[in-house]
Design a protein around this nucleic acid. Sequence first.
DNA 1: TGATTAATTGATACAATGTTGCAATAAAAA
DNA 2: TTTTTATTGCAACATTGTATCAATTAATCA
Lengths: 139, 139
Amino acid sequence: MIKVNTTEILKKYNLKKTAPRVAIISIIANNNNPISENDIKEEMGDMYDRVTFYRSVQTLIEVGLIHRIVADNITMYAYNHSEGNINIPELNHVHFFCKKCHSMICLEEVKVRDYKIPKDYIIEDCEVLIKGVCKNCKK
Amino acid sequence: MIKVNTTEILKKYNLKKTAPRVAIISIIANNNNPISENDIKEEMGDMYDRVTFYRSVQTLIEVGLIHRIVADNITMYAYNHSEGNINIPELNHVHFFCKKCHSMICLEEVKVRDYKIPKDYIIEDCEVLIKGVCKNCKK
DNA sequence: TGATTAATTGATACAATGTTGCAATAAAAA
DNA sequence: TTTTTATTGCAACATTGTATCAATTAATCA
């Protein structure tokens, strides 16, 4: 459980430190694995407002603090602990999605090789999504 | 432009050969790159019905004939030309998404290596999404 | 510290996307 | 051709996401 310094982070991106933002960042950062809007909503209690949530999440994605993963039409959010390294696409955003229970876990140390992309394309990010069945659902 | 034999394909999966299915399969298969619901809708004209579309697409994804890709909340559909090989995750579903114009292109020959997934997980599929800026938008 | 400024919130209304139920239809089987 | 069964297409609903705007609150500065 990594405790993030929301004051510092928000200042870094010139964003005001507001209650919803602090809550959203903390909740996402304190989860090792991607988390859904509903789970975040529950943790926020009556601090949750849908519009504010969408806007906050949008902002945080734009600055590169979190990212959104969609699998089988299920949307989840995860923290970019690699924050400083987002320009090393090989190392980022690798997830496993269970088709049965819809849980998602973050994986490390997976690499992508042999990009055959036209030279004049700019690569900013790389996401790898591995789908299958998790340990529990396999039984 | 690969012409697919919808009669054969649908029979293979025990699906009835209906007009909407034939249209949807043909449209997706005849596009080299992923295509949005709106584009498919346009090509279908008044044959398009939203509910039928969602159901058809759902069915076709389940049998592994097409797949859905979501980037920045934009959903697209692409044909699995590798149809027979869907259990070789290294070779499947590699796309480039342009953050500016929201176009998507299919890429070949990208490989993923060094899976560090717990041994008792079943891997069925692997998608790689590379985001950035395309040739045109770079200018 | 208190007033000023500017971003952000939260409510409302709207728009787009996705789902359920069911009667009518059409495809495949007999 | 008739029967059977899956699929369609409509209506109604549910969920997800967006635009507007007045009220609020955080940061700034005197």
